[in-house]
Design a binder for these strands. Structure first.
Lengths: 342, 342
DNA sequence: CTGTTAGCGCCTTCAA
DNA sequence: TTGAAGGCGCTAACAG
């Protein structure tokens, strides 16, 4: 009769420290120290251990390591969506900053839902990450409490209009909207149209909208027309919505879009409909995506630096394991790209 | 003098199962079973436990759980780059398929470097993931060995021109290039130009190129001109490279681009330079990105379904914890988008 | 339906 | 410079 095998089906059970130690003729802890480059290890010993590791094909069990040392080399990352290139760029910044630090990102997507975010944060915290990077400030009370009590570094991204748990990295979206209004006013535009997308999903777009209308109000203006797509932003939506705006508010001389995806659609609409860009209808976006700058005539827009936001957040977090004494705010700022469409 | 505090700054140490158990007046295992919905638990007991969990704010330590049960609820994901939207879409497919399964993706980016990939895979495997999703087939021998020996499910993505470790999900890039050639030939084009990007980074682009030239060769044709950008694909590069192609090979009637990013740049070049699309110069891309379809005249291209590749891979993997008896190949296929540029 | 026992594989602490 | 002992927080296996 076959002997009773342990519960792991694969022919060979995973190689452990003990096995390496046996082969190298040292104790487990010596192997452990060698691997982690921690503590004093003599040259010859190190060589024997390394050889043994290679020989048996040892892959360290990080799970056990994390449990024993009460802390993992994981970094939790929470973003609202993967469809939006903006968050992919944040992720890229995070990843680049992690670089060779040895940390591994574990991530989740909330789909702009706070309950989903809560479950995600709970689960991510369960992996005892060294830190947490999360886009946005709109958490459920439970989420905020977990994050606060976890004691680990927490970076909240994109926005700086709210009070952070530990540190905020981003820029003021309200100010960005405001500056857009001022800029376009100064360039002589007076009949403003607005083309937006879903505010429930994208609260920051709303902040920009509010900044914009405030700037206009302070100058005795109001929107001559506004349309909003009930769904996520997209080029197609931008194109369709601009058509509607032109129908509803014919006299508009500049259309401010909720972001570049939408604005590029607006440009395409103009090209297709034979509307002269800028002279007949100016177009202004938000984000400064590559695609807008690659257009035959580069899009006039406001460049946010998503990559830098992700990168800076992780750099700050990696710089110290302790939270800031006072919640800190890092303003990454933005820049107006003059372009040729407004 | 302040008392000497332990290394964890937060006032309260993490809540454990034992604490919950004490509050609920049951044993640890009962709490554990309740949380995991495993094993028989009476209604009243469950209620008491849940109340206790809420009361003390318990967050399960997944690290300990993974160690005890010899396997985590993690899924390793390895992609070459985050700059390329294609991989972001794969990631999205992976994430969507994971859905409410309880699995958490842990990911890493190789930057198209095999040594980086090897280190990444080693580290990811250290987290004892339930499965691994990895883009591409070009691994170092060590990587392949680790993956094979790990015993977990492994999905290799995008390509099906190679023999997989467990399962491959994708389509044949060589065939895609070939079909592009046949399609354009059948539409009457005879003077082909090729605009490409870095092959070292993107081996699949090369496979498509080879398929294309093979199709042409079988029809007694060869490329009338070809230019290649020594860097990653981008809209800007596509624009610049098409300008160069036109200078070097004036008679070209169709330009095949290595992908849509590049092709959209080509379209922009034509718009800017006043070249009539299709009648004067046809443009063909690859990938079927949204941006190409949102152009004033939709791009003629071949649509690959990146999202579906990611999703299908994870669905297959989740369907069974056991590897296929024979390495399996799932062909996701592609589709020609006729568009209006070729 | 609930509890007891015994680790998971590694790292911390203390000792040599 | 190396090792021994014990435990991290949880769960599998086996009782009751």
């Amino acid at each position: 009769m076959a002997s009773h095998r342990p519960r792991t089906p694969p022919p060979r059970a995973a190689v452990t420290l003990a096995e390496v130690a046996a082969v190298a003729g040292v104790s487990e802890i010596t192997v452990s120290r060698t691997i982690r480059n921690k503590g004093p290890i003599s040259g010859p010993t190190r060589a024997r251990v390394m050889a043994a590791i290679r020989e048996v094909g040892y892959v360290p069990n990080l799970v056990a390591g994390a449990l024993a040392s009460a802390g993992s080399q994981l970094m939790g990352v929470v973003i609202p969506s993967l469809s939006n290139i903006v968050f992919a760029e944040v992720l890229r910044g995070v990843h680049d900053a992690l670089g060779a630090s040895g940390y591994q990102p574990v991530f989740g997507v909330t789909d702009y839902d706070r309950k989903t975010e809560e479950a995600l944060v709970r689960s991510l915290l369960g992996w005892k990450p060294a830190a947490m990077v999360i886009v946005g400030f709109e958490h459920t009370p439970a989420t905020r409490k977990m994050l606060t009590r976890s004691g680990i570094r927490v970076a909240e991204l994109m926005d700086i209009d709210c009070a952070p748990i530990d540190i905020a990295v981003g820029f003021s979206h309200r100010q960005a909207g405001y500056d857009t209004g001022v800029y376009l006013f100064d360039r002589g535009y007076r009949r403003f149209g607005y083309v937006g997308h879903d505010w429930v999903q994208d609260r920051r777009a709303r902040l920009r909208y509010e900044g914009l209308t405030q700037a206009l109000a302070e100058r005795g203006l109001r929107l001559a027309g506004e349309v909003r797509f009930e769904g996520p932003s997209s080029t197609q939506a931008g194109s369709a919505m601009l058509a509607r705006l032109r129908a509803e508010a014919p006299g508009v001389d500049v259309a401010v879009f909720s972001n570049d995806d939408m604005a590029v659609g607006g440009v395409f609409h103009c090209i297709g409909a034979g509307v002269a860009l800028k002279s007949e209808l100016a177009i202004f976006g938000f984000n400064g995506l590559d695609i807008g700058q690659a257009l035959p005539r580069p899009l006039s827009t406001l460049r946010s630096n998503r990559y830098l936001i992700g990168r800076t957040a992780v750099e700050r977090i990696l710089a110290s394991a302790e939270r800031e004494r006072e919640p800190a705010v890092v303003n990454i700022g933005y820049e107006i790209l003059v372009g040729e469409t407004a």
